[in-house]
Simulated assay, not measured.
Amino acid sequence: MNFVDLLLLLLQDRYEEVDIVSKGGNYGWRVYEGPLLFQPQNSTVANTSSADAVNAAIFPVLGYSHSTINKLGSAAILGGYFYRAPTDPCTYGSYLYGDLYASHIWAAPETPEGSGNFTAKDIPFTCASDSPIKCDFIVNSSLPALQLVFSFGEDNRKDVYVLTQSGVYRVVRPSRCNYSCSKEVVSPTNHPTQVQLSDSNKIHSQSSILMIAAAFLLFLRISL
């Protein structure tokens, strides 16, 4: 299994990006904001740099425009973890990240693994019907009202958590949220069954209980 270090960059006012970490890497700022040429606001002077610096720029492997999040143009990328838990097999191996404003969470698999080629998918998310946290929804939307996303986390079992203003949420198996996953094995809830004893077993069990009780009384008798 190959591992790659990813760097999340919060840039200026147009683009958020994810980069593969490279020692001494030049990620293009401030000639580029993500893949876009950067032009400072309230400036008529072009943002120039040497041709070598521009040509050596490392462009992001993932990212999104601020306009994707809201019409105000404000956004802040947050994340992220490579999902390695068995809980959601359809997300396994993907890099999970989101935005501060809690309207988008992305899963990005690397194909093939170790290639540096990531494809982001804007994934739907909601609360499980049996969630221990009360789940309110945004008006006229199917999205849960998480308010703001602060961070992502991971436990020792590789399950991923999302820390939000309204609580901490864990990524669970898709069927709990009424989503389908072709790789998930869904089985009915197994209720514990009562073991029925035969008459001989009942007598044997009762005799064993009486013997234990007698031994306990004998122990008490000797101890007095």
Rank of each mutant, 00 (worst) to 15 (best):
L78H: 09
Y64C: 06
F137E: 08
C181G: 09
L217T: 13
C135E: 15
Y27P: 03
C127G: 01
F118R: 05
Y97M: 05
T87W: 02
G167I: 04
T119F: 10
S49D: 14
I133A: 12
L146V: 01
V18N: 01
A85D: 14
L220K: 02
G80L: 02
Y95P: 00
V186R: 06
Y83G: 01
I123D: 03
E16H: 06
A120E: 05
V4I: 15
Q12R: 14
G93P: 03
L224T: 03
I212A: 08
I123M: 11
C177R: 05
T189N: 15
D155Q: 04
S129A: 13
T193R: 11
F216K: 12
L96V: 06
F125T: 00
S205A: 11
V45F: 12
H104N: 10
R170N: 02
E17I: 09
F3L: 09
S22C: 08
R221V: 10
S129C: 06
P174I: 09
F137T: 04
S198L: 10
L10M: 07
V168E: 07
I133H: 08
L217F: 09
S175Y: 08
N140K: 14
L100Y: 09
L78P: 01
N55L: 11
C181F: 01
V149Q: 01
V168Y: 00
E17F: 01
T44I: 12
V31P: 01
I222R: 14
D199I: 12
S50G: 10
D159S: 08
Q165E: 06
L96K: 01
S187K: 15
E16M: 09
A76K: 14
T193K: 12
F150E: 03
D19G: 07
N2L: 14
P188I: 10
Y83C: 07
A128K: 00
D13E: 12
K134H: 13
A75Y: 08
L62Q: 04
A102E: 02
I20D: 03
K183M: 02
S151E: 12
S94C: 11
G25N: 02
C177M: 07
Q147V: 13
L96N: 00
G28I: 04
N201L: 12
V160G: 03
G80D: 02
L36N: 15
P40H: 15
A102F: 04
N70V: 07
R176V: 05
G167V: 03
K158A: 05
